[in-house]
C-alpha cells in the first residue's frame, strides 16, 4: 500500500518541483510568468480596439499599425506574397524590416514563445499530456517544418495565391480572436489534439512553418540561453522534460568535455527561458552567443574521467 503510494507520488512529480523547493515559486516561474504576460499583453493590445474602442494597435500579426505610426509585418507571409509575384507597398516593407531586425537580435523563435497565441494552446496541450501521463505517439522528424516551409513557398509560386494562409492555424487563431473566429476554433482544436494525443510538441516543435521561418531569421542572434553553470547539473532531467525543443540543450549542457561551449546555439531554441525556471541548480541563464568558450573548469573536470 505504502509502496503503491510511493510510486504514485513519483509518477506525479512534475518538472520544476525541485526548483520550487530550492528557489521558491517566483524564481521557479519567473520567465513563464513574464512570457505569459507578454503573450496576453500583446493579445490585449490587439483586442483593446475592437472590444473597448481603444485603438492602440490595428490589424493582426500578419501586419499591424501601432498608435497609427509603427508598422510591423510578418516576414513569412510577405515572403509568400513576394513569391506570387507581388511587390508590397512601402509600409509593409518598413514593417518587415523592423520585425526582421528585432528578431535578428533577440532570437527568431522569441516570436513563438513570447508572441504567438498558438503557443498558449500547445503549452496547454503539453501540460495536460504530462498530467495525464500520455507517452509516445507519431514520430516525425523535427526537420519536417523546414520541408513544410519550402512547400508553402512552392505552393505560393504554383498557385499564385497565399495558399498556406487558407489553413495556417497561427494567423487563423490570432485573426479569429480579433476579427471573429468562425470555424477557425476547429483548426486550433485540431492543433491541441495533435499535441495532446498524436505527437509530443507536434505543431510548434515539428510542423509549423511560421516558427521554422523565424528560426532561420534568428540563426545568428546574439541573445541566447547559456548553460553557464553546467558543472552544477545534477541530471534531474527537468529541463529536458519542460523544453519544447529538448534536442537543443544536450550538447551545450553535457558535451563540455568534447569542447562544446555552453551557449545553446541551435536556432530551434525559442528563448522561452523555461529551463532557467525549472533548474534547481540555476545552471541556465540568458546571455550572449559570443561568450561560448568551453570553460577551462569544464574541460579540467572532464579530462580525468
Amino acid at each position: 500500500m505504502s509502496e503503491n503510494m510511493h510510486t504514485k507520488s513519483l509518477h506525479t512529480k512534475r518538472w520544476g518541483q525541485e526548483a520550487v523547493e530550492a528557489k521558491g515559486w517566483w524564481l521557479a516561474h519567473k520567465w513563464l510568468v513574464l512570457r505569459r504576460a507578454s503573450q496576453l499583453g500583446i493579445l490585449a493590445a490587439f483586442l483593446a480596439g475592437p472590444w473597448f474602442g481603444l485603438w492602440l494597435v490595428k490589424g493582426n500579426l500578419n501586419y499591424s499599425l501601432t498608435l497609427n505610426t509603427l508598422p510591423l509585418a510578418d516576414p513569412f507571409i510577405l515572403l509568400q506574397s513576394l513569391v506570387t509575384g507581388h511587390v508590397p507597398e512601402k509600409l509593409a516593407i518598413i514593417g518587415v524590416a523592423i520585425v526582421v531586425g528585432f528578431y535578428l537580435l533577440v532570437g527568431g523563435r522569441v516570436y513563438c514563445s513570447w508572441v504567438c497565441p498558438v503557443n498558449l494552446v500547445t503549452d496547454a496541450a503539453d501540460s495536460l499530456r504530462d498530467r495525464l501521463g500520455i507517452k509516445g505517439g507519431a514520430h516525425v522528424s523535427r526537420h519536417a517544418r523546414y520541408w513544410i516551409l519550402a512547400l508553402t513557398l512552392l505552393l505560393a509560386g504554383i498557385t499564385g495565391t497565399l495558399a498556406w494562409e487558407l489553413v495556417n492555424p497561427v494567423s487563423m487563431l490570432h485573426r479569429g480572436l480579433i476579427f471573429g473566429i468562425g470555424a477557425a476554433w476547429m483548426v486550433v482544436l485540431a492543433v491541441f489534439v495533435l499535441d495532446l494525443f498524436v505527437m509530443h510538441r507536434g505543431w510548434c516543435g515539428h510542423l509549423c512553418p511560421v516558427g521554422a521561418c523565424y528560426g532561420l531569421i534568428g540563426k545568428a542572434s546574439p541573445l541566447r540561453v547559456v548553460a553557464t553553470k553546467r558543472e552544477a547539473c545534477n541530471d534531474c532531467m527537468d529541463c529536458f522534460a519542460v523544453c519544447p525543443e529538448p534536442l537543443v540543450i544536450k550538447a551545450p549542457l553535457k558535451d563540455g568535455a568534447k569542447g562544446v561551449g555552453p551557449v545553446i546555439l541551435a536556432s530551434e531554441c525559442t528563448n522561452c527561458g523555461r529551463c532557467i525556471d525549472v533548474c534547481s541548480k540555476d545552471v541556465f541563464s540568458f546571455g550572449s552567443r559570443f561568450n561560448n568558450a568551453a570553460s577551462m573548469a569544464g574541460v579540467a573536470q572532464a579530462t580525468p574521467k
Binding site: 493582426n60 500578419n62 477557425a184
Partner: peptide, 28 residues
Amino acid sequence: QDFLGACIRCGMCVRDCPYNILFLAKPE
C-alpha cells in the same frame, strides 16, 4: 488571382472603413 497573392489578410481595410461594411472571411 492577383488579389489572393497580394492580400496578407491583415484587416487594415476593415479597420479603416468608416462605415464598417468590410468583413474578413472566416474558414467556413
